[in-house]
Design a protein around this nucleic acid. Structure first.
Length: 292
DNA sequence: TGGCAGGGGTTGA
DNA sequence: TCAACCCCTGCC
């Protein structure tokens, strides 16, 4: 269904909508036809499409400020990319990912999504997000269901979450939602903590380890220094920066990433990740495949 | 049509 | 350090 709401048009430089939405940072967006995407911002359904530098947005009660904040249109993307280390891999990833922005998503939904992401592929995480909305979310006037609040997920319990296809992750999300609904964990408090403390604090949530904590910090709190290392990023680091040396420990990889990629490490991670996932051949060969 | 491998981690021992 | 945890998808 394409929205019947009137469209507003925004001119945005350095922004690629579909690349941003397909890069594995958000799981509530669906491409509903060749042009339009339907997703959620601030608990409201939104329809978005892009033509050149014009972004068309339809939806009820979506303020320009909310859009700018969510898509981070005002962030200095060129400045961010200029701060990347100068190497061939980041150069190529920047060409492929031109206009990809790291969004600012809702902390609770981001936390829930990434708890559900363990051993799951993007399509499956999107399905789980949809299942949670359908079974537990409140219907909006458009007929689409908003993401359920922590209290609703906590009330639903593990058995209901298993019906949403969470599998063993149901136990984690059930416990996590209770921790947050009860106030034992405050996602608001994370905003005021320095990143290392925030990371430790988030890891007190059931189902949140170091990788998921870094995803939450990067995609919900705008902590650009957070560097999530999943199996793809680990492959990338080993292949590109350690030439497949066998004895490199995961700890060494973390230390390298923290020192090499600098304050914009999260962006570098996202660009390398999306470029390689979209072009897996670049790390499958025995030799570097340099495009010149 | 069915069997099988493997996938964007965390937990707990 | 490592098994256990669920189940969907892609492939043969």
């Amino acid at each position: 269904m394409v929205s019947t709401y009137p469209e507003k048009i925004y001119r945005v430089a350095d922004f690629n909508l579909s690349l941003t939405l397909k890069s594995g940072q958000a799981f509530c967006w669906r491409q509903i036809d060749p042009e339009w995407w339907q997703g959620w911002i601030g608990g409201q359904p939104v329809w978005v499409r892009q033509q050149d530098d014009r972004v068309h947005v339809a939806g009820a009660g979506i303020s320009e400020n909310a859009l700018r904040h969510y898509f981070q249109w005002d962030a200095d993307l060129a400045g961010t990319l200029a701060a990347f280390p100068k190497d061939e891999w980041l150069r190529q990833s920047q060409i492929y990912c031109a206009g990809l922005r790291i969004m600012r998503q809702d902390p609770w939904e981001t936390t829930a999504n990434f708890i559900c992401s363990a051993l799951k592929q993007i399509v499956q995480i999107e399905q789980i997000n949809q299942n949670l909305r359908q079974r537990l979310g409140i219907a909006t006037s458009s007929g689409l269901h908003a993401f359920p609040l922590p209290s609703v997920v906590a009330e639903a319990g593990e058995a209901e979450l298993r019906l949403c296809k969470l599998g063993f992750r149901a136990r984690h999300l059930a416990r996590a939602s209770k921790q947050i609904a009860s106030g034992e964990i405050s996602l608001k408090r994370v905003e005021d903590l320095p990143t290392p403390e925030a990371r430790e604090y988030l890891q007190q949530i059931a189902g949140v380890g170091e990788k998921v904590a870094n995803c939450i910090l990067l995609f919900a709190y705008g902590r650009r220094e957070a560097f999530p290392i999943d199996v793809w990023v680990e492959r990338i680091l080993r292949r590109f920066y350690f030439q497949k040396r066998r004895k490199v420990t995961s700890r060494r990889l973390r230390e390298f990433a923290a020192s090499y990629f600098g304050p914009q490490a999260g962006y570098a991670q996202q660009y390398l990740f999306h470029w390689v996932r979209s072009n897996p051949r670049v790390i499958s060969g025995d030799r570097p495949l340099l495009r010149t």
